[in-house]
Amino acid sequence: MLTILSKDSMTVTREQDVVPCRNRVKEVAVKIGMGIVNQTKLITAASELARNMLRYANGGQVVIEVVSKGRESGVRLTFADKGPGIADINLAMQDGYSTGKSLGLGLPGTKRLVNEFDLKSIVGQGTTITILKWKNG
C-alpha cells in the first residue's frame, strides 16, 4: 500500500521555472535521504519532463510527493499539462522518436531513470506523466 507523506505542487510556465522545479525535487530527495546517484537520476528525469511540458504544452502543473510503501520511501512526481496530448504513445516511447527537434531521448530515456513511469494522454486534452523513484531503487 502506498502512503503519501507530503505533497507540494508548483506551476511550470516559463523556461526559468525549470531550475526551481529541479531544486524543489532535490530538496525532498535529500530530505528522505536518497543517495546521490538516484537523486541525480530523479532530478534529471524531472528536468526532462518539465522541459517536455514547456515545449509541447506551454507548461503545466508539477506535483511533488513523498510516498512510502512498507519499508521503502520514495519521491513521486506528477507532470500534468493541458497540451495537445500524445497521439501514439507507443511511438513516443520509442528510443530516437521525436516530433520536436530534440534527440528523441526524452520519454524512453526518462523511463529508464526512474522505477515507475506512467503516461496517460488524451489527444486534445492533455498529458499526465507520473514517475516514482524509490530511495534505494
Binding site: 537523486q39 541525480t40 537520476k41 534529471t44 526532462e48 528510443d95 524512453p108 530515456g109 529508464r112 531513470l113
Partner: peptide, 14 residues
C-alpha cells in the same frame, strides 16, 4: 564530470 551525472547520462541514452 561527476560520477552520478555520468551514470545518469548513460541511462538516459546520451
Amino acid at each position: 564530470m561527476q560520477p552520478a551525472v555520468a551514470i545518469t547520462l548513460i541511462e538516459l541514452g546520451l
